[in-house]
Design a binder for these strands. Structure first.
Lengths: 145, 145
DNA sequence: GCTTGACTTGGAGCGCGCTCCAACTCCTAC
DNA sequence: GTAGGAGTTGGAGCGCGCTCCAAGTCAAGC
């Protein structure tokens, strides 16, 4: 019995090299819930994860890398459906590199537009704040500057 | 947009109470659907809009300004619930200026953090794209043109 | 053996932000 | 008067991205 992360307090990050990480550990490291991890796998976003002899998931470090990238895609607003497309292309291997590149550049452009929009919105927000600041100064009796 | 009787600039000589834009016009101008406009009003985001003699909505230009601002809040990720809080404060008048200011500065900070996060994500995305570009060049560029 | 606890599954449920529907009223055009 | 079209209402329904649940399996500790 190699001690594995079933131990509630196992802060040692080196982990267990031969078995892979159990789902709770991955949940903690990624910040995704265990349910979400299983959901992602069922949805085909993650290729079937290795299993222990008891049928429990054991995540490899490559799975963690891929999860980290998926989380970047989500954080930038990519839909699950598009992530499924990307994951499917990835599964096809090197023949799909051009398609993956296209999907990614399209998404990059969308993110850049989104950032630009947000910056415009932020300007309006800041202007409004300045306006309120002025009102407040008036109210709170800057009688005497 | 055929000529319809409730033309926004229809000078009815006898009465003046029927002024303002009908909902379809506002929908077109804002890009919000008529359903969404009614939903926002029901939710209390918009103060009760004026009505024509037939009970139909007639939006004032101040309503349009407010809608535009609401749309900025939405675009920057503010929830309907928070927009309701803001709208309620606004209804209270000048006594709520400080609270509105606080709400807005908090939101501004959140938006700034969000933009910063997106920029980090974008960097990762760009790196990945570069990587794929390299793979693709390897694949297709074994013979140089 | 029994208990505990982390895991497994399929599927139901939820919160958000709309979106759609049915049934109705009102006004204008013909 | 009749048709059509825009508007009204309350409430149901929907797509997304999870989130939760029930019932079961497995391994370890007592």
């Amino acid at each position: 019995m190699t001690s594995h992360a079933a131990n509630p307090v196992d802060p040692d990050p080196k982990g267990v090299p031969d078995a892979g990480l159990p789902i709770a550990e991955v949940a903690q490291r990624t910040g995704l819930s265990k349910d979400t991890l299983r959901y992602y796998e069922k949805a085909g976003l993650i290729e079937a994860v290795d299993r222990s002899s008891a049928g429990q998931r054991r995540y490899a470090t490559t799975d963690l890398d891929w999860l980290a990238f998926l989380m970047r895609l989500r954080a930038t607003g990519m839909s699950i459906a598009d992530m499924q497309r990307f994951a499917e292309l990835r599964r096809k291997g090197s023949s799909s590199v051009a398609d993956r590149l296209e999907l990614l550049t399209g998404h990059r452009d969308a993110v850049q537009r989104h950032i630009a929009d947000l910056q415009g919105d932020l300007q309006v927000l800041v202007t409004k704040i300045t306006h309120y600041q002025g009102l407040l100064d008036e109210q709170t009796g800057t009688d005497q500057p």
